[in-house]
Computed example of a mutant assay.
Amino acid sequence: MLSKGIYDRPPMITYPEKVEYEKKQSYIAAAMGKKRPLNAVELTEIFFNIERNYFSVLLCMGLLQVIKDKEIKNYIKDGMEISEKQINFFNELLKKEALLGTVPVSMAVTNSTVSPFSDKLIVALFHFLNSTGVTFIGHALSLSMRLDLATYYSKVIGEILMYAEKGFNIMVNRQWLEQPLKRQIERF
């Protein structure tokens, strides 16, 4: 796959020749505007989020071909834009770190215009994907020790939550969302 250019390999960090220990708080906070290089954990989370968002873009592209409802189509377009913004931000960050950006795996979306799923199922899927997206970004936030990354992750979580509200409103307005079962408390 590498020789054919269809494998999206994660960025590499050279293995250190000796162990060095941090002596200053500047590892977390940028000292006088200078940022330290990404550590391996941060790089892993960035790569994972790029890959996850590439999948999201492909999913959106396929669904946009088959969805006829204008409101749902706009909702999916908005989700695709959020994913594209994340891909662009992370790729630019990797380029600034001299780690190159990742190249999307060239996967084709068929040209079908017949939806294999109902609109209700598609919106419910995006509702689920929004919650997993917040979970993954929150995980990356919890592992990041660079303030610029932590700030960006916090912003993205807010953006996903605002997007999720649009999908929630679509489900409520169309009566596609059932109330969760309420636990009855027995009194003795």
Score class of each variant (00 low, 15 high):
residue 156 V to F: 03
residue 107 M to Y: 10
residue 110 T to A: 10
residue 140 A to I: 14
residue 35 K to D: 04
residue 37 P to Q: 01
residue 187 R to H: 05
residue 30 A to M: 02
residue 8 D to V: 07
residue 84 E to D: 13
residue 14 T to H: 07
residue 96 K to W: 01
residue 153 Y to E: 02
residue 66 V to G: 01
residue 16 P to M: 06
residue 47 F to N: 11
residue 166 K to Y: 11
residue 159 E to G: 04
residue 164 A to S: 12
residue 13 I to H: 02
residue 44 T to N: 09
residue 20 E to N: 08
residue 120 K to F: 09
residue 86 Q to G: 10
residue 29 A to Q: 06
residue 177 L to A: 05
residue 68 K to P: 04
residue 154 S to V: 02
residue 161 L to C: 02
residue 96 K to E: 13
residue 4 K to Q: 03
residue 115 S to M: 02
residue 67 I to L: 13
residue 124 A to G: 05
residue 7 Y to K: 11
residue 16 P to F: 06
residue 130 N to P: 00
residue 78 D to F: 09
residue 103 V to D: 03
residue 10 P to I: 09
residue 3 S to E: 14
residue 89 F to D: 08
residue 44 T to Y: 15
residue 127 H to P: 00
residue 78 D to E: 14
residue 133 G to S: 07
residue 61 M to I: 08
residue 156 V to W: 06
residue 31 A to C: 00
residue 57 V to W: 03
residue 61 M to E: 15
residue 97 E to Y: 00
residue 146 R to K: 12
residue 42 E to T: 07
residue 108 A to N: 13
residue 177 L to S: 02
residue 32 M to H: 08
residue 25 Q to I: 08
residue 121 L to V: 11
residue 72 I to A: 14
residue 104 P to Q: 12
residue 166 K to I: 11
residue 66 V to N: 00
residue 150 A to C: 08
residue 3 S to P: 03
residue 38 L to H: 02
residue 14 T to P: 01
residue 180 P to F: 05
residue 60 C to G: 05
residue 180 P to E: 10
residue 120 K to I: 13
residue 110 T to F: 06
residue 105 V to H: 06
residue 75 Y to D: 03
residue 83 S to H: 10
residue 165 E to F: 12
residue 109 V to K: 03
residue 121 L to F: 15
residue 48 F to W: 09
residue 147 L to T: 14
residue 160 I to K: 05
residue 115 S to A: 15
residue 124 A to R: 13
residue 148 D to H: 10
residue 6 I to F: 09
residue 138 G to H: 04
residue 59 L to T: 14
residue 92 E to P: 00
residue 137 I to R: 06
residue 122 I to V: 15
residue 145 M to A: 05
residue 5 G to Y: 04
residue 81 E to M: 09
residue 153 Y to F: 15
residue 59 L to R: 10
residue 142 S to I: 11
residue 122 I to R: 02
residue 19 V to F: 07
residue 88 N to M: 10
residue 148 D to I: 09
residue 179 Q to T: 06
residue 24 K to P: 00
residue 27 Y to Q: 00
residue 165 E to A: 11
residue 73 K to L: 07
residue 170 I to G: 05
residue 123 V to M: 08
residue 78 D to R: 05
residue 185 I to Q: 08
residue 10 P to S: 11
residue 147 L to A: 07
residue 72 I to T: 12
residue 150 A to S: 10
residue 42 E to P: 02
residue 163 Y to D: 10
residue 40 A to C: 00
residue 135 T to K: 02
residue 126 F to W: 13
residue 154 S to W: 03
residue 72 I to W: 05
residue 132 T to S: 12
residue 165 E to T: 15
residue 25 Q to N: 01
residue 97 E to S: 01
residue 185 I to N: 03
residue 184 Q to I: 14
residue 142 S to T: 14
residue 147 L to H: 05
residue 2 L to T: 04
residue 168 F to R: 08
residue 109 V to M: 05
residue 157 I to T: 07
residue 48 F to R: 13
residue 72 I to R: 03
residue 62 G to P: 07
residue 20 E to V: 14
residue 170 I to K: 06
residue 156 V to R: 10
residue 10 P to W: 07
residue 86 Q to A: 14
residue 132 T to M: 14
residue 81 E to L: 08
